[in-house]
């Protein structure tokens, strides 16, 4: 029973730690840029607009292969998670 919950404990711990860390980092990032760019003034407005134009000009095609890899990896992960609940291989074996 203890052995069975080993990976569950690991997953929960990882999810909590990583989730908390990622949330804190995201909030900190957004807050930093908000403070940096939300000041009144011509130069800040200019920087804001330039930053927007810089973001808008980024091309999806440039990172297409990276997104494709991430999509495939995510699909594989979802499939493996489904297999843990018996919905993946088990179901496939059952049907065959």
């Amino acid at each position: 029973m203890v052995a069975a919950s080993l990976f569950d404990v690991y997953r929960w711990c990882l999810a909590i730690v990583v989730g908390t860390y990622a949330t804190i980092r995201l909030i900190s990032f957004v807050f930093y840029w908000r403070v940096a760019l939300d000041r009144p003034g011509r130069s800040e407005a200019l920087a804001r607009r330039y930053l927007m134009s810089l973001l808008v000009r980024s091309r999806f095609r440039r990172f297409f292969f990276d997104f494709l890899q991430i999509g495939v990896l995510a699909a594989v992960l979802v499939y493996l998670l489904l297999m843990h609940h018996g919905d993946g291989v088990g179901a496939a074996h059952g049907s065959s």
């Binding site: 990276d66 890899q69 990896l73 998670l81 843990h84």
Partner: peptide, 23 residues
């Protein structure tokens, strides 16, 4: 952007390895 995507890919690869191990 490439750097961030690489981190995401590495995370996914690690998660897959752990899921395989668990399976």
């Amino acid at each position: 952007v490439t750097h961030r995507l690489l981190i995401l890919k590495l995370t996914l690869v690690f998660s897959i390895l752990v899921a395989l191990l668990s399976l």
